[in-house]
Design a binder for these strands. Structure first.
Lengths: 222, 222
DNA sequence: TCCTTTCAAGACCATTCGGTCTAGATATGG
DNA sequence: CCATATCTAGACCGAATGGTCTTGAAAGGA
């Protein structure tokens, strides 16, 4: 029925209707679920994050989630669906973070500095070596998995839009150098930041990375 | 004996002494090897490139190299050693390309433009979707495989050094904007270019990517 | 109490994994 | 021709894969 291939459609629908909006006035009559589904997704996310999709085996997920095989399959359908949920959570976290850092009402340049500083911190030293679930997924599965493709594309577009928004506001406030186009600069920053994730795998020092990020931003800021 | 773990040392030595400088006055007496080892590495590289390490199965490699199981194991030891050879070839190709584009005697700014244009071409459209063996390897195996770690680290250092060299020459020729530090700018460009590889997975248009790269370089060039 | 549901533990399944080995054909040099 | 070495094809190996199913205990509502 669920076979390991990539017919995510059915599984997707299944988990959505089974998981979202818990107990809509519907009271199940047996023993209630005794574990936190979202916490399990989070733990699974951690495993996928540090090992990648293919290198993560079922026993790894069972150990991390502290679930039995049966419970895990009942709750999530299969490995692939669980992975997609973990990826969704990762993306949501990243976008939420950006929404805070680049909040429209706050000072855009400060926001951009915070945004870059966050990436510097996450891509240097041990944090850097841990890598990024989204970038790792993009490199491992993009082009082979339609559901993943969609999420990757959406994420980069969303990120670029937020950065472009902040740059536009900075430009309107006269803080940008002459000739800087916000949308073009946004693409530059997104590439830079994702490149940080890649070279971050070698565990550079925070100092170096921060100086590099500062040097880049200084090319745009007046 | 060779078991699938990561004792690359022995295999490494084996293939080195068995492959480099062919027939040093030594004439083997039986049937000679009837396939091109380097061509096989190249074909294997193609498979790892488009599928990644874990997702590449032995039958994939046999199909691509047109070798039998026995021949492949006799020639390369095991999957991991073959992968390392493929990775080495990929890295060598990339560095050779850079040595041409950023040749010390030629105009450094033109070289940097060519360097960026090459990345733009390789990271947009279908080329972009194909991705980069090195970045994919970094995200998939770095931190879990010491031999890979070494190669990734070496590559980024080598790339940064070449770009920094070109930028230094550009600065000496007075082509750089005031306040641009070549080594810092080199780190920026390396991050940007590796970020291109990541977002390239969504297959952006050549036009957009080229415009982005131009916009970045224009922030450094006078 | 009874019914229903979920739980953990683990047996079980077919398939695939990376890797070894054999058999028989083939191609070279002596 | 003989000895040597390599080739392909595929059987074979133990281990691991993702996934299903059974068992029996436990926890809720009616």
């Amino acid at each position: 029925m669920t076979q390991s291939g990539h017919l995510q459609f059915k599984d997707q629908l299944v988990y959505k209707s089974a998981v979202s909006h818990q107990t809509p006035a519907r009271l199940p009559r047996g023993r209630p679920r005794s574990f936190d589904t979202e916490a399990a997704v989070e733990r699974a996310m951690g495993v996928f994050w540090s090992r990648g999709y293919h290198a993560t085996a079922l026993p790894d997920l069972l150990r991390a989630t502290k679930l039995s095989r049966g419970s895990l399959y009942a709750a999530f359908g299969d490995k692939h669906s669980l992975f997609l949920r973990a990826l969704d959570r990762y993306v949501a976290n990243a976008l939420t973070r950006m929404d805070i850092e680049l909040a429209p009402h706050s000072e855009p340049v400060d926001g951009l500095r915070a945004y870059l500083a966050g990436y510097v911190e996450r891509t240097s030293g041990a944090n850097g070596r841990r890598g990024c679930l989204l970038v790792a997924t993009a490199m491992e599965l993009a082009g082979h998995d339609a559901e993943v493709d969609r999420r990757i594309g959406r994420f980069f577009k969303a990120m670029e839009a937020r950065v472009a928004g902040a740059l536009s506001r900075a430009k309107a406030a006269g803080k940008l150098d002459d000739g800087v186009d916000p949308s073009s600069a946004a693409r530059i920053l997104v590439c830079f930041v994702e490149g940080l994730r890649v070279v971050g795998k070698t565990g550079p020092t925070t100092i170096t990375s921060q100086a590099t990020a500062d040097a880049l931003l200084d090319r745009f800021i007046k």
